[in-house]
Computed example of a mutant assay.
Amino acid sequence: MTFEEMKDMLINYKNMTKTVYRLQEEIKLIKESVNSIREAKAYNPSGLPSGNRFKDETYEKAVKITEEYEKRLNKLFENVEEIYSAQKKITSLMDMLTEEERKVIEARYILGLKWDIIPMRTYMSRATCFRHHDAAITKMIQWADGI
């Protein structure tokens, strides 16, 4: 992993929580749709038996829609798990840093602060913040392969 790739991963950390929330909302809507379709499939307005001799096109379409929704749900669940895994990896890497390094990384990537604000927030000089930042990223790159 390169220095820039690690920075990109850290930048994306903040967006991961928003993405998980959006995916969970989509999962909720799809589950509601699937439940509605299942309820509709259970309703038989004609009262006629539905065996192999009768072809119910609406029922068949509902089954296909339900199957597509379930495929989409599985993909969404996979996406959520990948994001949780990436967040866990970042958190584990940050736990290995010194307190100063972690403060700078959190200020820059988790809180999204500009470099002008970080020295005031961390009570360090700007040069010290950059040194801690670069050291932290370098350490995280080295440890990333082990996690």
Rank of each mutant, 00 (worst) to 15 (best):
M1Y: 06
F3N: 07
F3H: 10
E5D: 12
E5R: 09
K7W: 05
D8K: 06
D8W: 10
D8T: 00
M9A: 01
L10N: 01
N12Y: 03
K14L: 03
M16F: 04
T17A: 06
T17W: 08
K18N: 09
Y21E: 13
L23S: 03
Q24H: 12
E25W: 08
E26L: 11
E26I: 10
L29M: 02
V34G: 00
N35I: 10
N35G: 03
S36Q: 03
S36G: 07
I37T: 14
R38E: 11
R38I: 10
E39V: 03
A40M: 15
A40C: 13
A42K: 14
A42P: 02
Y43V: 09
S50F: 11
G51R: 13
G51E: 10
N52C: 13
N52L: 14
N52F: 13
K55R: 11
E57F: 11
T58A: 13
Y59V: 06
Y59R: 14
K61C: 03
A62E: 15
V63H: 05
V63A: 06
K64Q: 11
K64P: 02
I65G: 07
E67K: 15
E67C: 09
E68M: 02
Y69R: 12
E70N: 05
K71W: 11
R72T: 09
L73W: 10
K75N: 15
L76H: 12
L76Y: 15
F77T: 01
E78W: 15
V80W: 01
E82K: 12
E82T: 02
A86V: 07
A86W: 11
K88Q: 13
K88S: 12
K89S: 07
K89A: 07
T91A: 09
L93T: 01
L93I: 14
D95P: 01
M96C: 11
T98R: 11
E99W: 14
R102M: 05
K103Y: 02
K103F: 12
V104L: 06
V104K: 01
V104Y: 00
V104F: 02
I105W: 03
E106P: 02
R108E: 01
Y109H: 03
L111S: 09
L113M: 03
W115K: 01
D116E: 03
D116A: 00
I117T: 12
I118F: 08
P119Q: 06
M120H: 07
Y123R: 11
R126Q: 06
T128N: 08
F130K: 03
H132K: 07
H133F: 09
H133Y: 06
H133M: 08
D134L: 02
A135D: 11
A136G: 04
T138D: 07
K139Q: 15
K139A: 01
Q142V: 11
Q142F: 05
I147Y: 12
